[in-house]
């Protein structure tokens, strides 16, 4: 059986947990060869094992996305071990909740390094890698609903995700002038129950229920819903889609 991304090589950052992990698994089920990157080697090995157990192809590459040298090594190993790069999912991100008055310069710099500089390097190096294949490609930037609207206590996070929204649009316009062309779109998840959220708010059922009640669809967001949206933005069904903000948030942002 041929999948939607059969034999195409995709790099997924932050693939050790949450949205990245589910995305890596779904892309592999759709035939992609996936380079899973992240900071935790044990979690990385676990994802690769999960994918292998489902009959897919994946490797793990240790990766601090804020470092260009790391990015170059990720691309080099991906090209050597899996082949030319079709797509990049710039998913890895950091999140914290702290009132503006208490957010320090160091806090801001840390989240900027990951969410903005990491995303910037992901597009830049992604463009270079895709261009080497001589074939079109696609890049998905995982921004946030908080890259479109504000959220009290998340000034730094919202600022960085807003930056990703703008970065995506410009990258899309430049990608459209490349030969062959590269599409770039941003995904804007609402509240998705991942370690990023539970790490800040705690992993308790009452809170999950409260988030669900506060969402028009009355359900909590799950990583696999984001994986489905990322697959759409990477695949041929979105061949004429570039520079868009795809909000998948259970309806929160529509209010």
């Amino acid at each position: 059986m041929s999948g939607a991304l059969q034999d195409r090589v995709v790099i997924v950052t932050g693939a050790t947990k949450g949205i990245g992990r589910e995305t890596a698994r779904l892309l592999a089920r759709e035939g992609a060869k996936v380079a899973c990157t992240g900071r935790n080697r044990d979690d990385g090995a676990a994802v690769v094992a999960e994918i292998a157990a489902e009959g897919g192809t994946a490797i793990f590459i240790p990766h601090d996305i804020a470092r260009e040298a790391d990015w170059r090594e990720v691309v080099r190993r991906t090209e050597t071990e899996l082949g030319g790069v079709y797509g990049v999912v710039n998913n890895a991100g950091a999140f914290f909740v702290k009132p503006l008055a208490e957010t320090t310069e160091a806090d801001f710099q840390d989240i900027y390094d990951i969410n903005v500089q990491g995303a910037f390097l992901g597009v830049k190096l992604g463009f270079e890698a895709i261009a080497r294949t001589g074939s079109p490609g696609a890049i998905v930037m995982v921004s946030s609903l908080m890259g479109q609207v504000g959220f009290p206590g998340a000034t730094a996070y919202c600022a960085t995700k807003g930056a990703v929204t703008g970065l995506t649009k410009t990258a899309a316009l430049e990608g459209a002038t490349m030969t062959p062309k590269v599409r770039v779109n941003s995904l804007h998840p609402g509240v998705i129950w991942t370690p990023m959220i539970t790490g800040q708010f705690g992993d308790d059922q009452a809170l999950q229920d409260a988030f669900a009640a506060d969402t028009p669809l009355k359900i909590i967001g799950l990583p696999r819903y984001m994986a489905d949206a990322i697959l759409f933005l990477l695949g041929d069904d979105s061949a004429h889609v570039t520079g868009i903000e795809l909000t998948v948030d259970g309806g929160r942002g529509a209010d």
Partner: peptide, 15 residues
């Protein structure tokens, strides 16, 4: 595949 998407815009306009 869009189970959690509602009230959203899907723009299909070549950028």
């Amino acid at each position: 595949r869009s189970h959690f998407m509602t009230g959203a815009d899907v723009v299909v306009d070549d950028g």
